[in-house]
């Protein structure tokens, strides 16, 4: 069946014949490799995307069920040479170690700051609680987000 996705503002039609996840379509069909594939159980957050503005794990969305929905991946947040302020803050605060989890944290962090431009430290941690960093670089990640909070 044909599935019409609106990915980072572009309308894309893909043919889907199995119950595969939106994560697989983004990576394998559309070549958007920023969204990472790790646990495929909703545990790690590395496949985080925005679906109609909601922060979700793309591994838990059936691609065929995303027909006509708006998808934002990390590629829709910033590009080479045109980084989102949060991506620049990650660079400046050493919030990237191996980098595998970074796109998921960027999407979760951007979603947080959209919803709540002045989060407390507790709210930042809560908003990132669905994302795992195996390098345990949480301090730098939290400081990077904190640096964009007005008045700090």
């Amino acid at each position: 069946m044909n599935v019409r996705l609106i990915v980072n503002g572009r309308t894309i039609n893909v043919e889907v014949t199995t119950p595969l996840s939106l994560l697989q379509v983004l990576r394998e069909e559309l070549g958007l490799l920023g969204t990472k594939d790790a646990c495929e159980q909703g545990e790690c957050g590395s496949c985080s995307i925005l679906l109609n503005g909601d922060l979700v794990c793309s591994c838990l969305v059936m691609a065929a069920d995303a027909d006509d929905l708006e998808v934002t991946t990390v590629e829709g947040i910033g590009t080479d040479g045109n980084l989102h302020p949060l991506q620049r803050a990650f660079v400046e605060h050493g919030a990237v170690q191996c980098g595998f989890c970074t796109p998921g944290f960027i999407v979760a962090g951007v979603h947080l700051l959209d919803q709540n431009p002045v989060p407390t430290s507790g709210e930042i941690r809560e908003a990132l609680s669905g994302n795992l960093c195996r390098c345990t670089g949480y301090g730098g990640i939290e400081r990077a987000i904190q640096s964009l909070v007005e008045g700090t």
Binding site: S21, C59, V61, M62
Partner: peptide, 21 residues
């Protein structure tokens, strides 16, 4: 919501032919 179902689908434990969303 898919939070249980898609875990099974991703693991290959569930192969639905017809899905009602």
């Amino acid at each position: 919501g898919g939070t249980d179902t898609m875990v099974l689908v991703n693991a290959g434990a569930l192969r639905p032919e017809y899905v009602i969303s």
